[in-house]
Design a binder for these strands. Structure first.
Length: 104
DNA sequence: GGGCTGACGGTTG
DNA sequence: GCAACCGCCAGCC
């Protein structure tokens, strides 16, 4: 854990997010040890390999919203996956953080 | 080695 | 209440 870099740490944390729950970039950054490095988390995700069991789709911003279309290849796709995992979306397209915010 | 970029967050206007 | 700016840190060119 401590022998790994911030990126690796972020990946480890994200991979620990249980199904049906979501985590925010800020929270992940906080767990990783840098509450202000929320941007790094997003950057790490952009560079995160999708073949490591990394549920990047469970990582959303503070609003409970997902990244622009170009990241997951389509927000609709991510939304579809999240809904399939039990995530509840509001009419405005945001995740119900009150019910699905991850607590470690 | 220096500078730019980046899936954010919080504060201020 | 909404919009815009600044600030943060680490990776990558």
């Amino acid at each position: 854990m401590d022998n790994t870099k911030f990126f690796k740490r972020v990946y480890d944390i994200v991979s620990q997010i249980p199904e049906g729950q979501v985590a925010t970039y800020g929270q992940i950054a906080l767990i990783a040890g840098n509450p202000n490095a929320s941007r790094i988390v997003g950057y790490a995700m952009s560079r995160a390999p999708s073949n490591q069991g990394l549920p990047c789709h469970r990582v959303v911003n503070r609003e409970g919203r997902m990244a622009p279309d170009h990241v997951f290849g389509g927000q609709k796709l991510q939304r579809s996956i999240l809904e399939k995992e039990g995530i509840t979306f509001m009419a405005n397209g945001c995740i119900d953080m009150k019910k699905h915010l991850w607590r470690f």
